[in-house]
Simulated assay, not measured.
Amino acid sequence: MASTSFDEIILRYNDAVLRQSDLVTLEGPKWLNDRIIEFYFSYLSSFYPSEHILLVPPAITYWIMNCPDTNSLQDFLKSLNLPSKKLIIFPVNDSDDVSRAEGGNHWSLLAYEKTDIIMTV
Rank of each mutant, 00 (worst) to 15 (best):
M1P: 06
M1A: 11
F6E: 15
I10W: 12
I10N: 07
I10P: 02
L11W: 06
L11K: 13
R12C: 11
R12M: 10
R12D: 10
R12W: 04
Y13G: 02
Y13R: 08
N14K: 15
D15F: 14
A16Q: 05
A16D: 05
L18S: 03
L18K: 06
Q20R: 13
S21D: 12
D22C: 10
L23K: 04
V24D: 08
T25F: 06
L26R: 12
L26Q: 11
E27L: 14
G28P: 04
P29T: 14
K30M: 14
W31H: 08
W31E: 14
W31S: 10
W31K: 08
L32P: 02
N33W: 03
D34H: 12
I36G: 08
I36S: 10
I37Y: 03
I37F: 09
E38R: 12
E38I: 00
Y40H: 12
Y40F: 15
Y43C: 09
L44Q: 11
L44E: 08
S45A: 15
S46R: 07
S46T: 09
F47W: 12
F47E: 12
Y48Q: 11
Y48K: 11
P49S: 03
S50P: 03
S50D: 10
E51Q: 13
E51T: 13
E51R: 10
H52Q: 14
H52G: 07
I53W: 03
I53G: 06
L54Y: 10
P57D: 05
P58C: 01
P58F: 01
I60R: 04
I60N: 04
Y62N: 06
W63K: 08
W63F: 08
I64T: 04
I64V: 13
I64F: 01
N66C: 07
N66M: 07
C67T: 00
P68N: 05
D69N: 06
N71F: 00
L73E: 00
L73M: 03
L73I: 00
Q74L: 00
Q74G: 01
Q74S: 09
D75F: 00
F76G: 00
F76D: 00
L77P: 00
L77C: 05
K78I: 02
K78H: 09
S79G: 07
S79K: 12
N81G: 08
N81A: 09
L82Q: 04
P83E: 06
S84N: 07
S84T: 12
K85D: 01
K85S: 05
K85L: 13
K85G: 02
K86F: 09
K86D: 14
L87H: 11
I88G: 01
V92I: 15
V92M: 11
N93E: 05
D94Y: 05
D94A: 05
D94C: 04
D94V: 03
D94P: 01
D96K: 12
D97E: 14
V98M: 15
R100Y: 13
A101M: 14
A101N: 13
A101Q: 14
G103W: 02
G104Q: 06
W107L: 04
W107A: 01
W107D: 02
S108H: 08
L109D: 07
E113Y: 08
K114E: 14
K114T: 09
K114F: 06
K114A: 15
T115L: 14
T115I: 13
T115F: 12
I117S: 10
I117E: 11
I118Y: 10
I118V: 12
M119V: 11
M119Y: 13
